[in-house]
């Protein structure tokens, strides 16, 4: 008896992992440097680079919204996938619970980011 192959959901999670990995490899270090080091310490960039009016304008712009959403959501999905698969390597036999926790947190972060980007208006 032949049964149709069950479709795997792996490619979806792998694609999100890959996209987040690529984005964080291309832009991650510079983003950390800008938002976490240069602006707080007043190095290289103008002191008001991340002032409220400027960041609000950026978050209200459609391109800005898309950029912020892609960075936060894809970074989270990348990390969730990698951490989930590393659980096995450190001796935790990850089952449904660990899967729900890892991908669930990424999903929660994605929904919160979408909510905040809608709340900042257009």
């Amino acid at each position: 008896m032949k049964r149709p192959l069950k479709r795997s959901n792996a490619p979806i999670f792998w694609a999100l992992f890959g996209a987040g990995g690529m984005l964080s490899a291309l832009l991650g270090p510079m983003l950390v440097f800008i938002t976490g080091i240069a602006v707080p310490l007043g190095l290289l960039l103008p002191a008001d680079t991340m002032s409220y009016p400027k960041m609000l304008a950026f978050a209200q712009n459609l391109i800005g919204k898309g950029f912020i959403f892609a960075i936060i959501a894809l970074f989270l999905w990348h990390a969730a996938h990698r951490i989930f698969h590393s659980l096995h390597d450190i001796g935790i036999h990850a089952g449904r619970g660990a899967r729900l926790l890892c991908y669930g947190l990424a999903m929660l972060g994605t929904v919160l980011a979408a909510y905040a980007l809608l709340a900042t208006g257009f």
Binding site: G20, L31, T35, G36, A59, G109
Partner: peptide, 17 residues
């Protein structure tokens, strides 16, 4: 660290809103 940094940014975005 990628997850932690994304969480920092997400928190900032929620504060911005």
């Amino acid at each position: 660290f990628v997850a932690a940094y994304a969480a920092v940014l997400l928190f900032g975005l929620l504060r911005l809103a």
